[in-house]
Structures are given as structure tokens and as C-alpha cells.
Design a protein around this nucleic acid. Structure first.
Length: 373
RNA sequence: GGAGGGGUGGCCGAGUGGUUAAUGGCAGCAGACUGUAAAUCUGCCGACGAGAGUCUACGUAGGUUCAAAUCCUGCCCCCUCCA
């Protein structure tokens, strides 16, 4: 079986072109991972997700723990088999829910007790349990259990939160069962405080992980602060391991982060926006709910090879979203995922050609043009 | 012909003397969405005005009252039952 390893193939400035080998296949980086929280990328068949160019999906410990249950997923053959996604899967540890479901949980040194948002039942997530669940899910990449520090946070709060995550990182590492082709990523925290980020990055390397994630960003701090935090964090991460910016982001965020040396991303934006009528195009975002599209026979994006753009007009997409027809969500999600993968392809080609700066400028300049009128 | 009920903003529908330009919902017009409690959420939604504000509004014509969507009278229309 393949070893879990990261092959660095080219660099352009801080940016890197790589190939990440896992038990379920390789991933070209920089990579964007569609989010499939509950064992499905919402509104998409897995075959369709693959057709967009996605090579790895993200799943979620907390949601799958509640339904259908980690052991049940394991008994059904693991997440790949259950959801018919043969490629690599990364699972979030539940750390994001520590923040997003803050009202429904209590936290102590040992871990977090959630009150299920579904039926109110209590569920305990500790680093050990999170590792066991992700093992049940058969995640190629397991994420350490952390607390996604909310924003804003005082330096003291961010430090306490980050240090708790570092202690949990030790326990995650110890509980993780090493298997060929499977890896464990640590998560850097520290808010927007560079000294804390540096401390966190060093602490994780002392533990030793197969990859390093930057967490706790895109939580309200703004792009400028996020980039500044990356500038202060990435140099503290090892060259020979993949770097994953969690939960990011908009197209311009991806471009800026790749320029700063990030290799992996995930974000709900393309999928959620697809379900709420917002499309991402080369010329910025388009809200298909808007009345101006009701008689527009043109495709959403000229030249795009996704099914939504190849076979349907803006007027029809507008009609579908107006009627809240499922097909509208499906087509826009497909387009958005296709668009995101296209951006990643362009960035990878840019790195390979040593012209990432030009490619990045081109993407941002196009976006600034705004939608066709 | 008789008895009863009802006519409210694009639609449905609250409201039975002042706090009502008039609750809600839908439709409409926009906005938000970043490791998914999201096919969700937020704002606007009579006219004119940038705004303060002004005007016109609860079938219709009058009346009572300091004050009427709300009370009284006539008329028009709709629904139910009886003949």
C-alpha cells in the first residue's frame, strides 16, 4: 500500500506544486476539497463531484458521529464505500463545531460535550474519541481535535485556546493509529497574533505530524488580517509537509494563500452559495435570483464547460432558483465546484510554468471586471 | 322576494373609535453566506421626496365625533340558507 507522503514537484516564490499520496489515491496540490459534511457534497452525486476535477473530499466527525454514527459507517465499509467516493477523504475533527455550536456545548480540559442539534442528546468528543471516529470513517487524512478559536479574541483568550489545542494535539497524535497511506494533520491556532501562531507551529512540529493546517482563520478577521497571519505563520511550517488552510475561502482568498505557500483548502462557499443562488464566475459573483436574468438567454459563463453553462441559459437558471427547484441548486453547485477546480488548475499551471504571479494577477483582474451586463 | 354573512394595501388575511400607512403569510426587490444546526438568514416592500416630511388610502356616497378601516344611513357587489 502507498505510503502517506508529500512530493514537492515545483515551487514559484513561496508557492508550491505538489502531489500528496494517500491510501485512496493522489492529490495534486494546491488542491481544493469540496465539503461533504454529512457524507454527501450537498446537491451533487459523487461522480459529478469527481467530474469537476475534485480529487479529495472533506467529511465531518461531529455530523457523522450523530448520524448515522461512526461505528455504523465503519460497519458499512467506511465513508468511501458508504458514499461511493473511491478517492481520498479528509475529515474535520469536530473542532469547527466547538466554535460554531458554542451554544450547544461545554468545554473542559478533557474535551467537549455537545448537546446534539438534532435531538438534544449528549455526545462527548475528546481527542481520543475524535481519532477513533475518524478511524471508523476511514479518513485518509485525520485532523487533530482542536478548538477553532473564535474571532475576536483577546491575546489571552487566543493563547489559552491555542495551548489547549496544542495539548489536545499531543493526545491526538498518541491516539492516532498509524497505517500506511493514512496521515494525521496538526492544526495551528493563535488567532491573528503572530507570536502565538509561531508558538503553535513550533509546538506541533515538536509533536510531529504528516501535514500542518492553519485553523481559526476566515472567521471574521478579514482578508488583510488573514493574509498577514499567513505571512507570519507559514514560514514556521516545514517545507516537506503539506499545508492546509482550513475553511478558506473565496476565490481571491485561494489565490492569495497559494502565493503564500498554502497547498490545500476546503470551503462550503461554492456548495452553499450554489444552493443560495450565488454563482462564482471569472468575472466575480452573480446572483441568479436577480430579476435582470429573467430573459437572458446567454450562459452563466461563456466558455465554461460545466453542464450548467453548456446546456442552460441564465434565464432558466433564474427560473429554477426562483421556484426553488432542486435542479437549480444542483446546476449552480456543479458550476461553482467546477469553477473552483478551474482556479486551482490555473494556479497549479502557473506554478509549474514559473508564472504564478501573472496568473494570480490575471485571476484577480478578471474578477474585478464584474459580471457581464 | 326574505334571512344572515361579507367587501382591508399585488394576493391571502388580522384588526371593531385614538398608540394604524394599517399584525402575519405569500409574491416582489435587494443583500449576506469562508474546517455547513443553512435548498438558510437579513433588509426593503402605498405615492412623491436624498431627507425632514407631504399626500392618498380599508367597496361607494353621505353622516356622527375633537378623532372613523372600526359607529349610523343610502347605494353597489359577493357568499350561504329559505321561498
Amino acid at each position: 500500500m502507498t505510503d502517506f507522503r508529500f512530493e514537492l514537484r515545483a515551487t514559484d516564490g513561496a508557492a508550491r506544486l505538489g502531489l500528496l499520496h494517500t491510501a485512496h489515491g493522489g492529490i495534486e496540490t494546491p488542491a481544493f476539497m469540496p465539503v461533504g459534511t454529512a457524507g454527501t457534497v450537498k446537491a451533487m452525486m459523487p461522480e459529478s463531484v469527481a467530474a469537476t476535477g475534485a480529487q479529495i473530499l472533506l467529511g465531518n466527525t461531529y455530523h457523522l458521529m450523530l448520524r448515522p454514527g461512526a461505528e455504523r459507517v465503519r460497519d458499512l465499509g467506511g465513508l468511501h464505500v458508504m458514499m461511493n467516493w473511491p478517492g481520498p477523504i479528509l475529515t474535520d475533527s469536530g473542532g469547527f463545531q466547538v466554535m460554531s455550536l458554542a451554544k450547544l456545548r461545554t468545554l473542559n480540559e478533557d474535551g467537549v460535550t455537545f448537546q446534539s442539534h438534532i435531538d438534544g442528546s449528549r455526545h462527548v468528543l475528546t481527542p481520543e474519541r475524535s481519532m477513533a471516529i475518524q478511524h471508523c470513517l476511514d479518513a485518509d487524512i485525520t485532523m487533530a481535535f482542536d478548538e477553532c478559536t473564535p474571532f475576536p479574541a483577546t491575546p489571552a483568550q487566543a493563547a489559552d485556546s491555542m495551548r489547549l489545542s496544542m495539548r489536545w494535539a499531543v493526545r491526538s497524535r498518541e491516539a492516532f493509529v498509524a497505517r500506511p497511506g493514512y496521515g494525521l494533520f496538526g492544526i495551528v491556532q493563535g488567532g491573528v497574533h503572530l507570536d502565538l501562531r509561531a508558538e503553535s507551529a513550533e509546538a506541533l512540529q515538536a509533536i510531529g505530524f504528516d501535514g500542518y493546517a492553519v485553523g481559526g482563520l476566515a472567521v471574521g478577521e478579514g482578508q488583510e488580517a488573514m493574509f498577514a497571519t499567513l505571512d507570519g505563520t507559514v514560514p514556521h511550517l516545514p517545507q516537506d509537509k503539506p499545508r492546509y488552510l482550513m475553511g478558506v475561502g473565496r476565490p481571491a482568498d485561494l489565490v492569495g494563500a497559494v502565493l503564500r505557500g498554502i497547498d490545500m483548502f476546503d470551503c462550503v462557499m461554492p456548495t452553499r452559495s450554489g444552493r443560495t443562488a450565488q454563482a462564482f464566475t471569472r468575472r466575480g459573483t452573480v446572483n441568479l435570483r436577480n430579476a435582470r436574468h429573467q430573459e437572458d438567454r446567454r450562459p452563466l459563463e461563456e466558455g465554461c464547460s460545466c453542464p450548467a453553462c453548456r446546456n442552460y441559459s441564465r434565464a432558466y437558471l433564474h427560473h429554477l432558483t426562483r421556484c426553488q427547484e432542486i435542479l437549480g441548486a444542483m446546476l449552480l453547485t456543479w458550476h461553482n465546484l467546477h469553477f473552483y477546480q478551474d482556479i486551482m488548475r490555473r494556479l497549479r499551471l502557473g506554478i509549474l510554468a514559473g508564472k504564478l504571479g501573472q496568473v494570480a494577477e490575471g485571476i484577480l483582474a478578471e474578477e474585478a471586471l464584474g459580471d457581464i451586463q
